[in-house]
Every structure is written in structure tokens, then in C-alpha cells.
Design a protein around this nucleic acid. Structure first.
Lengths: 202, 202
DNA sequence: GTGGCCTTCTGACATTTGTCATGTGCGCCG
DNA sequence: CGGCGCACATGACAAATGTCAGAAGGCCAC
């Protein structure tokens, strides 16, 4: 009984190389490859793989949102995320989306193959180091609105623009930013954005 | 006559997979692998490869600085950069460092093998799309100081701190920031930082 | 049903930025 | 040599931001 795998990663070099390596494992077969989020979805619908191995950052839709959709459409398809830059918040989001495996690209291909089997068997696997990071980073102290406003502030937009986009008054926006900044212990909103990003809270 | 290759990439998964794929080409042999900048240097000194394939982002020292050092120590060793996020400025820096190949990770392994041969033969190869980006982005309009100050402003530090770190008066810092912002056509310093980052000018 | 937390607002204030005019001195290039 | 652009500065003003106090309504929990 072979295990059918979908591989989604926007980097052709990596995807191809990975496919070649996984092909060496005789119980695994890569039935589809995709280079973007939407393509991954289409491929999954067409080929109904047992396990979908998704890159976190892809054009179109990221790995987590693909996983969320897949969970609804193909409940039998297990999903796992592979990523280069694993931030704690991503892990949390991924787990909430029903993802069963979360590994950094620093693992070896053999290890990856094992993890694919683990995931297929219905178990979960989370990279210990990433898990430790996630635990030590803890939960976001920000309220929903604070996070939303901080997000909008991320690209350096002035308060007026943030207020308009969030349909809030400027005063409210400043209050939220102020409280977010003090909760994060940051110097100002921009440092706060950086901190929240690092911890995966936005 | 086989072509001896050094492979440096911090992602074990990719490096291993790449090595496996390049091994399929019978004129190429991967003589060393490294997961960080310093390690890449050490490996290069020990194994004296014909071509060093370096990832742009690695812990310790990035691909370009490794290439610069290599150019001095092993002039016969050709260097090339492989990267996921190719920003125009990186390309320019890389070329200045004597790098002969610059390709995104979206190429296929076969293509990469060809490019390795091209580079070894003494020719250059730059991904056409990245080249186009670099040309359209053009040269940085920023003066040295403007760039320096913008860099210090990157993590959201207040003017006072920037002034101290750059040993400038606060007024001067604001002037530089102001002119940088207007040269880049940005809304404010933070957007300017983003823009300059995107274009590889910082 | 009261107390606590979140959302949302207003107004006022201090501080920080952004912008402009203007000045000096240096080095380079024609 | 004279001009140009850059580095660096000052001072002043307008605009944006950060901080605080206060207040109203909603929701949940005890």
C-alpha cells in the first residue's frame, strides 16, 4: 500500500529535489506538485492525496489557509507544513487549522519521510525546537482589536489611514496602539510591530 | 574531468536534496556541504572546489560575504549565489563581490547543473528576471549617510537614539531622513525603510 | 446584578516627527 | 578658481504621535 503525497512549494529547485528524494522511499509516491496556494488546492482536489506537504510561504495562499480549506473539502487528507522561518504564531495557527505536522526545512529528507508516515498514521509531529519557541513566546497579550490595528500599522501607515481602514476614530486607534505598545514593552508602534511579528502575534 | 562543487545552504532538507540531484549529473560531484557561512569557508579551504554554490541567507555570514572572502583566498574557485528572495541590491552586491552566477530557487535542478557548468567555464549567468528587476530598480539615489541613517531607523528607533548611534545631531538626522523619504517618494520614514529594503538599497 | 474586561469614543496635553530656510566647510571636477 | 554636491549644523514651525483621564455601552462570570 503506497502513500500518496502532494508536494507544494514555490521553489522549483526544492520541490523537484524533494520529490526525487521522497521517490527513493518505496512506500511513498509523489502524485502531484504545486507551486502556489491555489494550485495546491486544485491539485489536491484532482488527485486526492493521503498527505499534503505544504510550504508555509507560497504565492496566492499560504500553507495554513490551504490546510484550512483542505480540511473542509478533503477531511481524509492529512496536512503538514514545512517552513524555513518558523515563527511561534504560525505553529499555533497551523495547529488550529488542523495541520498534523510542522517541521523546519533543516530536517533531513529521511526524517521528513518518517514524519510523513507518522502524520499519515494519524499522529502528530511538531519540531521540538519550534514547539519550545511557541511555548516560551506564550499567548498574545493583545486583544483582537489591538492586534488588528497593529497589523494595519505594520507598513508605516499614518494614524489617519489606519483609522479609515479599520473604521475607527483616530483617537481610538491611538489608544489601541498605545496600549499595544505598552503591553509589548516596546519603544513605539514600529518596534511593537517588529516584536509582535517575531512572536507570530500578528 | 569532473567538476567539484561545494554546496552551502542552511536548510538541510534542501541541501541534501540538491546534492542528490546534482549527483545524477555524471560530470558533477559534490565534494563538500556546509550549513553556515563560516562552515562554507572552512569547507572551501579544505576541499578547494571548482565552484561554490552559496545560499544568500545563511547564519554566520551571508553568501555574498563568503564569496568576497573566497575571491581573495581561492581565486580559482568560481562562486555563485542561489536565493529564494532575490532583491535587486543583492544582485549588485554579489556581482561586485565577483560572483559569476545568480539564480533564484525557482529554477529546476537540471537548469542549475547547466548554470554550474557555465560558471565553471568562466562565463556568467544572471537570472533574466532578477536582472530586469535590478535594472528597473536602478541605482540608489541615497547618499551614504542617508542610507546609514535609514538603516539605523529600520527597527523603529527614535531620532534621539539614531543620532547617538550615528554620532550626529538630531537635526541632522531628521534632515537626512527627510531627504531620504522624499527621494524615495515615501509617506514617512518607515515606509521609506520598506521601500529601500525591497530595492536592496539598505 | 454587580464587577470586570473589551470596545469605542472625546478632549487635552507633551513629545516626537517632518519640513523648510539657511549657514559653514570640505572636496571634486571642469 | 568657481561652482556643485555632500556632510553637518541650527532654529523654528506645523503635523503626527504618544499618553492620560474619563465615560458609555456590551458581554460574561460569579
Amino acid at each position: 500500500m503506497t502513500l500518496r503525497v502532494l508536494l507544494a512549494d514555490d521553489e522549483h529547485l526544492i520541490r523537484g529535489a524533494l520529490a526525487a528524494l521522497l521517490a527513493l522511499e518505496d512506500d511513498l509516491v509523489v502524485v502531484a506538485e504545486a507551486a502556489s496556494g491555489p494550485e495546491a488546492l486544485a491539485m489536491a482536489r484532482a488527485h486526492r492525496p493521503d498527505v499534503a506537504v505544504l510550504d508555509l510561504q507560497m504565492p496566492g495562499a499560504d500553507g495554513v489557509s490551504v490546510a484550512t480549506t483542505l480540511r473542509g473539502e478533503l477531511p481524509d487528507c492529512r496536512t503538514m507544513i514545512v517552513t524555513s522561518h518558523g515563527r511561534p504564531g504560525h505553529l499555533k495557527r497551523a495547529l488550529a487549522a488542523g495541520v498534523r505536522g510542522f517541521v523546519p526545512k533543516t530536517v533531513s529528507a529521511q526524517r521528513l519521510a518518517e514524519i510523513i508516515r507518522t502524520v499519515h498514521a494519524g499522529n502528530r509531529y511538531v519540531d521540538p525546537e519550534l514547539a519550545a519557541d511557541a511555548i516560551s513566546a506564550g499567548d498574545s497579550p493583545l486583544t483582537e482589536r489591538e492586534a488588528e490595528v497593529l497589523e494595519l500599522a505594520a507598513d508605516g501607515a499614518p494614524v489617519a489611514e489606519i483609522a479609515e481602514r479599520a473604521a475607527l476614530s483616530q483617537g481610538t486607534v491611538r489608544n489601541y496602539l498605545s496600549s499595544a505598545v505598552s503591553k509589548l514593552g516596546a519603544e513605539n508602534r514600529h518596534a511593537a510591530v517588529r516584536l509582535a511579528r517575531e512572536r507570530g502575534w500578528v
